[in-house]
């Protein structure tokens, strides 16, 4: 089977609004029913739209990699079903096994868990060669780092030796390092990761992600992601409308807010010069969104407000590609 595109998603804080800042909240999450779980506004709608089948186009593949324990599989799958989301892979962390084997470092550590898993997933995807990928994570942990490293290992910009050095630096266990290295060796070079969206759940300043290069797109909401994905041909105008509507239903933003969100993502260089035209095309279909004419007009104003300062930064990998330096940068924030 051939694939149009692969979308890889994290769950907690990317798809679901999960508050695991305290032990009490952590316990409550474990007992939450599927219908009690709350989506990040617009996430379900976006994932539905990305996974939607289109006539005359290959299907897209949805792969979910979450740090939640495997014991939560039934609840989380049920939640995704309730949201009408389809997926092809769903990976959860073997936390019980980690505890049983005394691998306490692995309980918190994410790079040594997610990276080998992503590489294996890519290797096992039938007819996956040449298929583009878009990845979704958040700023709560180290998603920007894991996804960027994954992308550059696939592209051949990070050698197996380099990968091993980074995995050892993050404290990954030897078997995880060996597995990742073995898988990386088997993969052909394929510069297939288009963009990495990072949901700013913790409101990390977007400039913090500049060392990761413009391939990483920090977003404040899925309205911003929908605009970038539409400009990249991943969403239809109806898809943008659907995401915008569910985002508005959840948060009730004004036309001014939407225009400001639009300007913000243009200003940061993540939308090309044709963004206004793209938006125009998309919002022609905005019949279900309140004050659509106002949204369009105000967005046009905000777009022109940027004047000569407008620029577009095509997605590209971290300048220099020094993942050990990136790791230190990331740790400075999470310290």
């Amino acid at each position: 089977m051939s694939w149009r595109h692969i979308y890889r998603w994290d769950l907690d804080k990317t798809y679901l609004e999960t508050d695991f800042e305290s032990l009490r909240r952590l316990v409550l999450i474990a007992f939450e029913k599927p219908e009690e779980k709350t989506n990040v506004p617009g996430s379900a709608s976006l994932l539905r739209e990305l996974g939607r089948d289109h006539e005359d186009r290959d299907p897209s593949r949805v792969c979910i990699v979450s740090g939640s324990p495997r014991q939560m599989r039934r609840t989380l799958e049920k939640k995704l079903e309730l949201d009408g989301v389809r997926w092809h892979e769903f990976h959860l962390k073997p936390q019980w096994e980690n505890l049983r084997r005394g691998r306490f470092r692995a309980v918190r550590e994410q790079v040594g868990y997610k990276l080998p898993l992503l590489l294996r997933s890519r290797l096992k995807t039938e007819d996956g060669g040449g298929v583009g990928e878009t990845l979704f994570g958040d700023d709560a942990e180290v998603d920007a780092f894991i996804y960027s490293l994954y992308a550059d290992v696939l592209a051949g910009r990070v050698t197996t030796d380099g990968l091993v050095r980074v995995l050892r630096a993050v404290g990954a266990y030897d078997d995880a390092v060996d597995k990742a290295a073995a898988t990386a060796e088997k993969l052909d070079d394929d510069d297939c990761v288009e963009r990495i969206f990072i949901m700013l759940d913790r409101r990390t300043p977007p400039g913090f992600f500049r060392p990761f290069g413009p391939r990483v797109v920090p977003i404040y909401n899925y309205f911003q992601a929908a605009l970038v994905l539409f400009s990249g041909g991943h969403l239809t105008p109806e898809g943008v409308v659907s995401v915008t509507r569910s985002f508005l239903d959840a948060e009730g933003h004004s036309a001014d807010d939407l225009a400001n969100f639009f300007q913000d993502v243009v200003r940061r260089g993540h939308l090309p010069a044709t963004a206004m035209q793209d938006l125009g095309l998309a919002v022609q279909e905005l019949s279900g969104v309140p004050n659509e004419a106002e949204v369009i007009w105000k967005s046009v104003q905000k777009f022109s407000d940027l004047g000569a300062s407008r620029r577009f930064l095509p997605p590209s990998p971290p300048p220099g590609g020094d993942y050990e330096a990136l790791l230190a940068h990331l740790r400075s924030r999470h310290a």
């Binding site: 990390t204 404040y220 001014d256 400001n260 969100f261 300007q263 407000d305 940027l306 004047g307």
Partner: peptide, 30 residues
Amino acid sequence: HLILVGDAVVIGPLLDELEYEPGRLSLRHT
């Protein structure tokens, strides 16, 4: 809401280094 008026080439990167709520502010370049 706030509209930040000034050189967006200077203001934008300054803003990017801070925590902010993008729905409540925008830039007007000059």
